[in-house]
């Protein structure tokens, strides 16, 4: 379903992704784990046609992501790490726009939107402009939107970041069900090791843009001679804290958000 072949991405002097190669088969739930700035989001952005790789090839569902963008885009859905809803529209309008963009049949839109907004408990607030939402509510809306249509392949980039335990549970239950009933391929990143252990059928560790280990949770623990995935992870990536270098757009957004919250 996903093929990544010696892919490198540089931003000026920074090598965000460094000669990465891996494959994900249809129906797998694949977790990409690594410290801040390791290159997880950059990998996902390249796979989803938002960034062009500096070197190497990647394909989704046999479609080359660079040469055949339109076809590649027909294969997946995504929940981004960064905000991506229109805050000047209501939750319902955001959902409706997404449904149309993803060709959900007109007759099903209302039902699906209601189902998903109820799942994340935003149905009562559906007609409020998203700019009036709290951070957690916005995040829940992003999740609901990502699950609105049912693609063959779903990318989740730190989907549970900033969510309460209840919503995290709901999300993983829902994702597990999609994976089971529709054989949907799931590609996700997270900072919660227990989430990865519980939900991934296979895991890769990435650090400084390089994949340093890959396998099932059991295999990774065995390799490192540790008893939990967390220990295995720390053993491989070290315990030093990483400072994420900041993307200029994110920095702008942060400043803007800080200002508008005052």
């Amino acid at each position: 379903m996903i093929k990544v072949d010696h892919v490198t991405k540089r931003f000026g002097a920074i090598t965000a992704v460094d000669d990465v190669t891996f494959e994900v088969k249809a129906g797998e739930r694949f977790a990409l784990l690594g410290p801040n700035g390791a290159g997880k989001s950059t990998t996902i952005k390249m796979l989803t046609t938002l960034l062009r790789p500096t070197k190497g090839n990647m394909s989704l569902n046999q479609h080359d992501v660079v040469k055949n963008q339109d076809a590649a885009r027909r294969s997946f859905g995504i929940v981004f790490q960064d905000p991506s809803v229109d805050t000047e529209m209501t939750a319902y309008e955001n959902m409706q726009l997404h449904a149309v963009l993803y060709h959900v049949p007109s007759g099903q839109i209302d039902k699906r939107v209601k189902e998903l907004l109820e799942l994340v408990e935003l149905w009562d607030r559906r007609d409020s402009l998203v700019k009036t939402y709290s951070g957690g509510m916005k995040r829940r809306l992003e999740i609901a939107r990502g699950l609105l249509h049912h693609p063959k392949l779903l990318f989740l980039d730190e989907p549970t970041l900033g969510l309460d335990a209840q919503t995290r549970n709901l999300l993983w239950e829902y994702v597990q069900r999609l994976s089971r009933e529709q054989n949907m391929t799931i590609f996700f990143t997270t900072h919660y090791m227990e989430e990865a252990e519980a939900n991934a059928s296979r895991i890769a560790f990435i650090d400084h843009g390089k994949i340093i280990a890959m396998g099932t949770a059991v295999e990774l623990k065995k390799q490192t001679n540790t008893r939990s995935l967390e220990q295995a992870y720390l053993k491989m990536t070290g315990t030093k804290i990483r400072d994420e270098q900041v993307d200029p757009h994110d920095a702008w957004r942060e400043r803007h958000r800080a200002r508008s919250m005052r």
Binding site: T48, T49, L50, D70, R73, R74, F76, I78, F80, D82, P83, S84, V85, D86, T87, H98, L101, Y102, H103, H249, W252, R253, H256
Partner: peptide, 14 residues
């Protein structure tokens, strides 16, 4: 682009 919404339309199957 600055508010992030552009990504939503750029990855859509359209």
């Amino acid at each position: 682009r600055q508010f992030g919404f552009l990504k939503e339309t750029l990855v859509a199957p359209v």
